[in-house]
């Protein structure tokens, strides 16, 4: 074997690997760069407190979708966090064939395509209620968020050292008190980061909202009525033939990216500040 040849090959391969890796994150920079370039001009104070204008008129804002997204996230969190935390504790605490099955079911839930979840929320909420509504969109988003909450809760509860449990029982605490006063507070950081990850997963979801929250050109605060959301607005405006609306869609995309980046940053901060030393 020619060893110089081998070394050259080795170096060429390394170069190739670096190049491909660099190329694969190029789209990230392109997306951020182009969104900023196209979106920045749409953004001014009006953008945040005005309603959209009809096509042909320039200006206008996205207040309806900001309010809608906020409401959807709050409702979805309120639905999924209690039940998700409970189920996460359950899977971490109880080991039997039922929890084994449950873990598989949670994986199935996590793998469900978002559009299918949209169909489900349509069948479960929209149809019985007889119309599109914010609440049906929130149900869809809650179903998407649920597995994230369950899994992070399970993981963190499992990480709490067994000795804390022993210490609590040794003081005569009941099982319930031990979970609520010792295990849950010690897992708070993990559960909170689960909520943040879950929020950043649902804040940009469009597919499950198409036939649930549906969209609404006006600000709506009633959960029983259709509502707009940031990603829905981006979709509708991006697919429209109007120049001005594309600009609004870019502006809204920029807002959405900033929110997602912000959540990412928040996640890192929570990881630091809430760290419980064992």
């Amino acid at each position: 074997m020619n060893s110089r040849n081998r070394v050259v090959k080795d170096n060429l391969f390394k170069l190739f690997v670096f190049l491909l890796a660099a190329l694969s994150i190029l789209p990230l920079f392109l997306i951020i760069f182009q969104t900023v370039r196209n979106g920045i001009s749409a953004i001014n104070p009006e953008f945040f407190y005005k309603l959209p204008k009809p096509p042909g008129e320039s200006g206008g804002g996205i207040l309806n979708s900001l309010v809608g997204s906020f409401m959807l996230v709050i409702l979805a969190t309120a639905f999924s966090v209690p039940i998700g935390t409970l189920t996460g504790i359950f899977i971490a605490e109880v080991r039997n064939s039922f929890t084994e099955l449950l873990r598989t079911l949670v994986n199935i839930l996590q793998g469900l395509p978002s559009i299918v979840i949209g169909i489900l929320a349509y069948l479960w909420v929209v149809k019985p209620m007889g119309g599109f509504s914010a609440i049906s969109g929130a149900v869809a988003l809650a179903v998407m968020m649920l597995p994230v909450i369950i899994k992070t809760t399970e993981e963190t509860v499992r990480l709490v050292p067994f000795t804390l449990r022993e210490a609590s029982f040794s003081l005569g605490a009941t099982y319930t008190k031990t979970i609520i006063k010792i295990i849950l507070p010690a897992s708070a950081r993990g559960i909170l980061s689960g909520i943040i990850v879950g929020t950043s997963r649902i804040i940009g979801e469009t597919a499950p909202l198409l036939f649930t929250a549906f969209g609404n050109p006006f600000v709506n605060l009633n959960p029983m009525k259709p509502t707009d959301a940031l990603p829905l607005l981006i979709f509708n405006y991006a697919m429209s033939p109007y120049e001005e609306w594309h600009k609004i869609a870019w502006g809204a995309s920029l807002v959405l990216i900033i929110v997602v980046l912000g959540l990412n940053l928040l996640l890192k901060m929570v990881g630091k500040r809430w760290e419980t030393k064992f």
Partner: peptide, 29 residues
């Protein structure tokens, strides 16, 4: 203790809810 039994029942209820959700998803479709 009674509260422990109730608490365990609540845990099982949460798990059962999620299991039913997945089952119901399939059946609804």
């Amino acid at each position: 203790m009674k509260t422990d039994r109730i608490f365990r029942a609540v845990l099982y209820a949460g798990g059962a809810f999620v299991a039913l959700l997945v089952l119901l998803a399939f059946l609804s479709l």
